[in-house]
Amino acid sequence: METKENQLTEQESLQIIQSMIAVAKNEVKSDSFIYLLWGWLVFIASISQFILIEMKNDLNSIPWLLMPIGGIITIGYFVRKRKEEKVKTHVGDFIKYIWTAFGASMVVIMFFNSMNSMQVLPVIMCLYGIGLFLSGGVLKFKPLVWGGIFCWLCAIAGFEIQNIYLLLILALAVLGGYIIPGYLLKMNNKK
């Protein structure tokens, strides 16, 4: 681009501003990878635990060991992404804050609650709802907003049920909240 000093017309100026703002707007997108990673990990863990409980296997909590693995992959992913990041957006920053708050709340609830492991699941689904709803709102990406609402509905069902079928509701929540919106986001980013 050559620098045209003081030779711009008002239309040209406006066009430059509009085109550059449009270019920058395209940078405001969220990666689908993390939604899909956690969606599938929680989906597999909850379905597997349900099957193990049905089979009367005492080691039925083992599938949840996938969670720390997911944590390590997530950290590695963000470290790599940070190195490649050429631009920081306000929306991107806000999304980081949303999911950091989500992670902190998860840690507090997982380690300091006095409920049994099943009772805590609807509370976690409510947290999913907050994270997805806010992310979808700030990204202006409706499937995530609907995913968040779906997680809240699953949480209501979860509070009503309170038995091992809660694991299936959790699987349903991540399917509708993370996996389906995750794939839609992936398709949307390719456009």
Binding site: I16, I17, S19, M20, I21, V23, A24, K25, E27, V87, K88, T89, H90, G92, D93
Partner: peptide, 8 residues
């Protein structure tokens, strides 16, 4: 115009 749209 680019910088007004992003943080950095």
């Amino acid at each position: 115009s680019l910088l007004i749209s992003v943080k950095e």
